[in-house]
Write a protein that binds this DNA or RNA. Structure first.
Lengths: 114, 114
DNA sequence: TCATTATATAATGATTTGCTTATATATACA
DNA sequence: TGTATATATAAGCAAATCATTATATAATGA
């Protein structure tokens, strides 16, 4: 049976995580494009540990997953996560953030390894 | 033209507000039933000022509105709010909280004035 | 192997959050 | 009018949050 609702506890937890502009934007970007830590550092203009800590939180609840590719660790949305459908309905209402990646391309700081 | 997306700033703000179990449950209940402060105090077993403060935050962003009825002040979801469609798509995925009100009825603490 | 690059983790600090108690205000009703 | 009830606001406090700097770990490439 397909789950159509989500427990309140879990919903509140996920909404809290998404209730931070940096993380919300990250997840919106990751919904369509894999990214590595250093790209986010470039995009958000905050320190590398700050980005790592945001990603850690998202990973801890299973919203994103990581995968090493050579020197980089790429993050992506874990679409198999039990709560992805819940999150997707939120993300679908947000404006696409492709301009952020286009900006990286222009700067030559987009990572496209492997 | 109907708005289909919401700015990231505003979305993050609203998600943060809903990222608290008490407020999330409040809004879910209010989506279908008006309630007054004292009912929430009974439901959530926290102090009256705590409930008032949560409602204040929700009111400040326009998500709920208030209306005095005699001695009580009833809150309801402001469905005319610009961002209600965004919120509704979240609320629709949450389990209904009618048991909370049924419990109040049983206890005789449901307020049905006016 | 050594220097560089990418990332994670630890420690720290300022700010925010969510509760509490105390108090003020407004309505209801005897 | 005086008392009880409902709500809001103020003040205070512990815990959580989000950033920073410092440091550790892992892979790359000369």
């Amino acid at each position: 049976m397909l789950k159509t609702t989500i427990e309140m506890d879990k919903a509140a937890l996920i909404l809290k995580l998404l209730g931070d502009k940096t993380r919300l934007t990250m997840v919106k970007i990751l919904d369509f494009h894999d990214c590595c830590v250093c790209e986010f550092v470039e995009i958000f203009k905050v320190s590398q540990p700050s980005i790592s800590q945001h990603l850690r939180k998202l990973k801890d609840v299973g919203l994103v997953k990581e995968e090493r590719r050579g020197q980089w660790i790429f993050y992506s949305v874990n679409k198999n996560n039990e709560y992805y459908p819940f999150v997707a309905k939120i993300l679908n209402q947000l404006p696409d953030q492709d301009d952020k990646l286009i900006e990286l391309e222009k700067q030559g700081t987009r990572i496209t390894c492997c």
